[in-house]
Amino acid sequence: MLASIGSMAKLDGYIEKEGIDRKIFYDGTYEAGRYSENQYALPYETNPMMMCVNTELMKKEGIDLPGSSWTIEDLYDICQRVSKDVNNDGIVDQFGIADYTWENAVFAYGAKLFGNDGSSADFTSSKVRRALTMMEKLNALSGNYEPGSDDFDKGKVAFLPMTLAQYRTYKSYPYHVAKYSAFSWTCIKMPSESRKICGTNSETSLFAVSSQSHRKKLAWKFVKLLCCDKKVQQYLLRHSQGSTVLRSVISSRQTKRFLEEDGITHNALTTESLDAILNSMRASQHFKKYNDAMGRADYLISKALEKREVDTEISKIQNQLENTLISK
């Protein structure tokens, strides 16, 4: 919104003059600062979604831990094998996945819900349809019950999507001792339709320069310090809840030591797995009416999924969202 109304200065000239290589950043974080083919902000911190896995439950069912190239079809196959009536009372009480949203599925298929400028919706595309069909299939595995994070805590669920910030909060000592002492678990990247698709959604905090600033060069230097300086980014990783945006900080010895010693991982998250997660990120779409449009979309699609009427309702949902985008 700020870029679209001219409140932020373009940074392309500064970046080129300084010789800053965009490859020092994870692609998804850098793209979050682009608007209309120009760079208006640099990434500072990111909070990717990742998949937590109950490794003991997987082992009990004789299922190998998914590899780095696992797909959403692999996710469904595993969930199908795991979901069952353990107590033989006619009710499914062991589940494949909890808290997996239709938005997660849309990312997995590499679909875009809106046009780049936010003036159009695209909920009837084949990718979106496949994502919503997969959601219906996953939901059907648990019967009439909707498993949640509490069920994962009890060791009854194989998969649970969680943001890095949630993970670091949940795993903080001593809370994690009571919460997760009953079983072992690990974290891997989110599944996607194919290896070519970056299927991880992430929210990224950015810094920009005001177009009205009288000290643009000084402001730019401060932005560069916050976003490009390795010491600043290393400090952020240790003391914040999200992740650094710099590849070199993730691969550093300090980060490896921090993850091993800090007590938040217990081998559940390593520099290698965190790097894979960050490499699979795609920047979320954002435009002036994004929050209003997504709020409306979530309500309509969740309602259609609950009634199992997505296929018949998707065209109506498309029309309603188009109206939301063009209305004041």
Rank of each mutant, 00 (worst) to 15 (best):
K316T: 14
E306F: 12
E261A: 10
R215I: 04
Q241F: 13
H286A: 13
I277W: 01
W220S: 05
K256M: 07
I317M: 09
K256N: 07
K137A: 11
E272T: 08
R130K: 14
Q254H: 10
D153W: 05
R130G: 00
T255M: 13
G242N: 01
S36R: 11
N87Q: 12
T71M: 07
G33H: 07
E103Y: 08
S243Q: 00
D262S: 15
A32F: 09
T101Y: 03
S205C: 04
D229L: 04
S69N: 11
D151K: 14
E31W: 06
G62F: 13
S119C: 05
E37G: 06
S205Y: 10
I314P: 08
S4P: 01
D122V: 02
S83L: 02
I264N: 07
D64R: 04
F107N: 02
I72D: 12
N267M: 08
F152R: 03
A3T: 13
Q39R: 12
T204Y: 06
D298F: 08
Y175R: 10
S315L: 09
R34S: 12
A32E: 11
W70A: 10
Q94D: 02
A268H: 00
N47Y: 13
I91W: 13
Y40F: 15
G33C: 07
S4C: 06
L278I: 01
S36I: 10
L65H: 06
C79Y: 02
A105G: 10
K230S: 12
N291I: 00
S4A: 14
Y35H: 15
G263M: 04
F123V: 03
V157H: 03
S142F: 05
E73N: 14
S284W: 00
Y44K: 13
A105Y: 07
L269G: 00
K221Q: 14
K316E: 12
P174K: 11
E193R: 14
L2V: 03
K256S: 14
Y30G: 02
N319Q: 15
E61T: 01
N87F: 00
A268E: 06
S192D: 06
L236V: 08
C52L: 15
T71D: 01
H214M: 06
R253F: 00
K231C: 02
S142D: 13
H286L: 07
G148Q: 03
Q39T: 15
F258P: 02
S251A: 14
R308N: 15
I20H: 11
E136P: 05
K17Q: 11
E136R: 09
W102N: 05
A182E: 12
I78S: 03
P161W: 11
A182H: 09
A41F: 05
